[in-house]
Every structure is written in C-alpha cells, then in structure tokens.
Simulated assay, not measured.
Amino acid sequence: MYLRHGAYYFVDHGGRWHHLGRDKREALRRYADVATVPQAVSLGAWMDRYLREIVPRKGQRTQRDNAAEMERLRSVFGDMLPDEVRPGDIYRYIDARGAPTRANREIALLSHLYTQLIRWEVVEHNPCRGIERNRERPRQRYVTDEEFWAVHDIAAPVLQLGMRLAVLTGVRLGRMLSLRREHVTDDGLMVPATKGGRPLLVEWTPELRDVVDGLERLRAVASVYLVARRDGQPYTRDGWQSMWTRTRDRALAEGLIAEPFSWHDLRAKAGSEAGDEELLGHQDMRVLRRHYQRAPRRVRPNRVER
C-alpha cells in the first residue's frame, strides 16, 4: 500500500494503481479485502486456481491437454483482469492462433474458466458466450482391412491383440488400458461407463474370446489388468502410443501403407463396420454418424432404360 498525494493506493502485479481512499483506517480495511483474495488481481491467478481445483477432476488426457491450452491462454490473457477481457480480444486470439481446431479447444477452456469465475462471484458475464468458433470438418480417414492387417502383422503380439480389441469393441485407448480382469464376465466384456453414459456389455464372439484369452497368455505373471506388460504392470498411455507410433511408422517406411492413420482411427473403423450402432456407446447417434462412420456407403445404381 502506498501513500500518494494524500491518498492510499494498492499496486497490483500488473502495475495498476487502485485507489483505497484518503482515510488510513478505511484504506487498510480495503487493502485487507484485496490482500485476502490475491487471485482476483489477474486472470492468470484465477487460471492457477482452475488448474488446482477443476482440472484434477477430469481425465488424465484432458488434464494434460488443459495444462498446455492454459499456458497458451495465459500468454495472451494472463496479465489482464477478469472483467477486462472483451469478445474482440477473443476474436483476435482466434484469428492469430493459426490452428483452427486448437483455437476452438482453447476458447472452450477459457469459456469454462469464466463459467467458474461466475460461480466464484468474480465476474457476472462470460465474454466467450456467443463467440463464433472455427468450423471443423470431421476427420474422414478410413482404415481399410488391408491397411489394418499390414500394420498388425509387423506389430508386437500385445499390440496385435490391442488392435484387434479396438476394432472388435470400439473401446477408446484410455478405457482399454484401464480394463481389469473383473470386467471379463460370463456374458461378455464389460466396458465401464463414460461420463454421462451407461456401461456396455460386449457379448462374446469367438474372435473376442480369442483376443481376451490371448492377452491372458501373454503375461508371465498374474495381473489385475486385461492389457498388461509381461510383468503384470499396466501400460501407460504414452508408452502404448510410443509403441504404436513406432510400428505404424515402420509400416510407412516399408511401403506397407501409403498414408498414416492414428490409433483413434481404429475406433472409427469399429464404428464404420459395426452391426450394432450401440457399440461405441454414443447416446446421440448423430455423433456416431458424423465422426465415426467413415466407410464408403454402398448403394445400388439407378437403371437406365429406353
């Protein structure tokens, strides 16, 4: 707190001077109010609270993504006060970002931050509301059977079984790596519910039973995890992705496939070829049809007659 021209001021981390009044006792009271909520000084401080209190409730991958996204947001908005951010500032960020999809994710995170700020009674309005996001085109990469087996046949045994499990069940990678032996039931493979959904019981087929039994045989010791290393320990997401990327890139280098595809594209292959639209667990079938059904649609031609 500083005395300047007969009045008391508080200077925040951004160098801004806040008038506290001329009466010292009243100025001290106002200073105490400011000092007890240091996060209110800048949006960057509230970002820190969001990372501490909100992000840990999310999935591990989302936590990593949010941490990276928040650092980009911090570099632009971190020194601003929460109520200083205007829609024009957000549009300038989107235009300058240069990565349309990532910009959308970052502004979505900023919007959720402001939702929390409203709940924490820091601001009354969300400047992200009504912002027009970049248009995103659904990914169209469809993995053919030939491409699938070309990568499969040069992969390590555990990766081969994982690839087959992904296409048979459509299970996401994070969910697959978290499957435990208790999820192997008499009636089928129980896939735990995602947020807001219900568990899926994937009924046994000879192919699915063969994959699950194969995963059991690979381990040298017992494990609570269905997909595990030989020592019974679970794979990390990064470790699995590294193994996958090396194998996929080898297939590219050897000319076995012409274009790369991601592990997530295997989920789209499962959705494209599923005989049951419930396989991927979407409550809104429009998500399935827009993002996961990528195989060419078979249609009959018209007849042309004289």
Rank of each mutant, 00 (worst) to 15 (best):
L3E: 08
R4N: 06
G6I: 10
A7I: 01
Y9Q: 08
F10A: 10
H13R: 02
G14D: 13
G14V: 09
G15E: 12
H18T: 14
H19N: 14
D23E: 13
E26D: 06
A27H: 05
P38M: 12
S42D: 04
M47R: 06
M47T: 03
R49L: 14
Y50F: 15
R52H: 11
R52V: 09
I54V: 15
V55C: 01
R57S: 13
Q63W: 01
A67D: 13
A68I: 12
E69I: 07
E71D: 14
R72D: 13
R74Q: 07
G78H: 13
L81K: 15
L81P: 00
P82Q: 13
R86G: 00
I90G: 04
D95V: 11
A96N: 11
P100T: 13
P100Y: 12
A103Q: 03
N104V: 07
N104F: 02
R105Q: 14
E106D: 10
L113I: 15
Q116N: 12
I118C: 04
R119P: 00
E121P: 00
P127I: 04
C128F: 08
I131A: 02
P138W: 06
E147I: 01
V151T: 03
I154Y: 10
I154W: 11
A155L: 11
A155Q: 08
M163N: 01
A166F: 05
T169V: 08
G170W: 02
R172A: 09
L173K: 05
L179F: 02
H183K: 06
D186H: 07
D186V: 11
G188T: 08
V191K: 01
P192R: 15
K195N: 10
G196N: 09
G197P: 01
P199S: 09
L200F: 02
L200S: 07
V202Q: 02
V202G: 01
E203S: 08
P206C: 03
R217G: 01
V221R: 05
V224E: 15
A228K: 02
R229G: 03
P234H: 05
T236E: 01
D238K: 06
D238P: 00
S242Y: 09
M243R: 14
W244L: 04
T245L: 12
T245E: 05
R246Y: 08
A251N: 10
A251C: 05
E254K: 11
E254Y: 09
E254W: 10
G255F: 09
L256I: 06
I257D: 03
S262K: 11
W263F: 15
H264F: 04
L266Y: 03
E273D: 15
G275T: 15
E278P: 00
L279C: 05
L280D: 07
G281H: 08
V287K: 07
R298M: 09
V299T: 15
V299D: 10
R303G: 09
E305N: 09
